[in-house]
């Protein structure tokens, strides 16, 4: 009986297990093996076993530092813009308009991030916002190819990923809890801090996690809006694999990035457990 059950379960899990192995574990194993190898003389990978690549990680310290600065900053900036938007959509907008406004939030997502980032080149470039600022007397403001431009691109590009989890959390929020708070003497703004905000934390955490993890691997936006001067780990990886073809070192950098991501996810899971008020509210990824 137990054996049959075991077999049935094994059988049912096989397809998922194979997918998991083929698409996640195998590539990860390859990257791990490469990271202990060497760069061949003409570039690429040469087998070997050395910790040299890991010892060399400090050579990409600046890339990690930039990433670990702009990723949290971008996440927080996205959150600050996404939360009021999600709140507005979930709580304030009449159901009549809700669907349309939600679609409007998604629509930009159907366009390549590449195209959307390019649009920002116009807005931030010399004939865009700086030209408008010049008209009110602020001359020679440079926005494009700065960390600020990268931040703008990041916030813009990742906004829907932040808006939706928060929207869902706020949408699920029982409006009677706010009535209860008001009934117990809480003015609306305080009710927001005491009830709405804590109960939307699973959404906030999920959104932040999605944005943060993706930001850590980001390379396109810094390349386009940072003018190549803002260098993320993602850019370091692109260069290591496609330009200098130092696959062994690239793999070591990738492994380091994955480790940082795993640590972040672990911290996130703990945070969710703390904020997860009721069991069915916990928004695990």
């Amino acid at each position: 009986m137990a054996m049959t059950q075991f077999r049935a379960r094994a059988l049912l899990l096989t397809p998922a297990g194979l997918w998991y192995a083929a698409l996640l574990l195998l590539p990860l194993a390859v990257v791990l093996i490469f990271s202990f190898g060497e760069r061949s003389a003409i570039g690429g990978y040469a087998p070997g076993f050395t910790l040299e690549q890991y010892a060399n990680l400090p050579a990409r310290f600046a890339a990690f530092r930039n990433t670990m600065t702009l990723a949290p900053l971008g996440t927080v900036a996205s959150l600050l813009i996404a939360y009021p938007l999600a709140y507005f959509l979930a709580v304030r907008v009449s159901p009549k308009w809700k669907t349309m406004l939600l679609v409007l939030v998604i629509v930009p997502f159907w366009t390549s991030i590449l195209i959307r980032s390019y649009a920002w080149i116009f807005l931030l470039g010399g004939k865009g916002i700086p030209a408008l600022l010049a008209q009110i007397g602020l001359d020679d403001v440079r926005l494009l190819n700065t960390p600020f431009a990268v931040l703008v691109g990041i916030v813009y590009g990742y906004l829907p990923l932040m808006v939706f989890p928060i929207y869902v959390a706020l949408e699920k929020l029982d409006k009677r809890l706010l009535e209860a708070a008001a009934d117990l003497g809480t003015p609306p703004w305080r009710a927001f801090l005491q009830i709405t905000l804590p109960l939307s934390m699973p959404g906030v955490l999920t959104g932040s996690m999605l944005v943060f993890i993706l930001l850590m691997g980001e390379f396109l936006i810094p390349a386009i809006l940072g003018g190549g001067k803002v260098f993320f780990v993602g850019n370091a990886l692109v260069d290591l694999f496609l330009q200098s073809r130092n696959w062994a070192f690239g793999s070591a950098v990738a492994v380091a990035l994955v480790v940082i991501m795993l640590i972040t996810v672990a911290l996130y899971t703990r945070a969710v457990k703390r904020f997860g008020a009721s069991r069915d509210d916990v928004g695990l990824m």
């Binding site: 009677r176 209860a180 009934d183 009721s278």
Partner: peptide, 21 residues
């Protein structure tokens, strides 16, 4: 007068207890 200023309190139909407390 808004609800939060009134000297009355309510027991809600589904209690509306705060799940995070």
């Amino acid at each position: 007068m808004p609800a939060y200023r009134r000297p009355v309190n309510m027991v809600f139909q589904h209690y509306a207890l705060f799940p995070h407390m």
